[in-house]
């Protein structure tokens, strides 16, 4: 108890570090974000409410949150698979594939959007084979999910990978020798330790998807009520020099995203505790 109160640390400078952290976060995150709220406050409550509940805006929330959620789930599953393969198997070209995973981070999102749109449009490499099956990807909501899956992949892989690396194989072997089936080993030994980072990766991919603009506008088709994402509507408002309206929608996005991310963090904390 005493020890904890004293907070012994090898390195000095706790106060300086904390002060710096708060200053830095304020400068980089809080002050810019507070401008969003400040601009919004120039409009009354009533106008705020009508702007953020317009049918077109409501439809865009459904699409943005829905597509980001589905894309994050796809990434959680396949990202885990990729991370697993990269950590557990040795094969030719592994380094290359490992580097490939980061590409969606580095690529300008507009380039990603244009590339995806040309591949999935009805005369593109993949699109031409999907079209006869009645599946249209480019210029539909499905296209949005594809774009968001693309840009969200590294988040899950890169959060799960280090944990898998630390997870000793001996644990699995021990579980097996104690008579656990393969499914039991996965469920009771591996999954509990990779679930928290998986959730983090999921949350990051989801958050990234919510704010994504550059790649989506090229593949979405941007039809009102059908495939318009919320960030596009924010740009639309700006195009009308309606700064307050744009920030009003941004505030809604911000608050809802914060609540969702907070819930995910809470869930992660809760599962993290239960494991131990």
């Amino acid at each position: 108890m005493l020890l904890r109160l004293k907070q012994h640390s090898v390195l000095p400078g706790f106060h300086l570090a904390l002060g710096y952290t708060i200053f830095y976060l304020s400068l980089i995150v809080l002050i810019p974000l507070s401008m969003v709220f400040f601009k919004t406050s120039t409009m009354g409550w009533e106008r705020f409410w009508t702007v953020v509940t317009e049918p077109r805006v409501m439809a865009s929330y459904r699409i943005t949150f829905g597509a980001a959620l589905i894309a994050a789930m796809i990434n959680a599953f396949f990202g885990l698979l990729v991370a697993w393969v990269l950590e557990r198997y040795q094969f030719f070209g592994k380094r290359f594939i490992d580097a490939l995973v980061d590409l969606p981070f580095a690529l300008p999102t507009a380039v990603a959007g244009i590339a995806l749109a040309s591949i999935y449009s009805s005369n593109g490499w993949i699109g031409q084979y999907l079209e006869p099956l009645g599946i249209k990807v480019a210029f539909t909501p499905l296209g949005i999910i594809v774009a968001l899956t693309f840009i969200g992949l590294p988040f899950v892989v890169r959060t799960v990978q280090p944990v898998l690396q630390d997870l000793e194989r001996e644990l699995e072997e021990a579980a097996a020798s104690l008579g656990a089936t393969r499914w039991q080993t996965f469920k009771c030994v591996i999954f509990p330790s990779i679930f928290p980072p998986l959730l983090t990766g999921f949350a990051l991919a989801f958050a990234r998807g919510l704010g994504e603009y550059g790649s989506v506008v090229f593949i979405a088709g941007n039809m009102p009520m059908i495939s318009e994402i919320t960030p596009l509507l924010i740009i639309t408002k700006l195009e009308q020099y309606d700064y307050a309206g744009a920030t009003a929608i941004a505030v809604v996005m911000l608050v809802v995203s914060f609540i969702l991310l907070f819930l995910i963090n809470l869930l992660q904390w809760w599962t993290g505790k239960r494991c131990r």
């Binding site: 449009s121 009805s122 480019a138 090229f218 088709g221 941007n222």
Partner: peptide, 20 residues
Amino acid sequence: VPILDSGARGATTTFVQRGI
């Protein structure tokens, strides 16, 4: 109109490059 691109260049690309 099947697609509303966000800018004129995008619309030209859709028409010329994608053949839509």
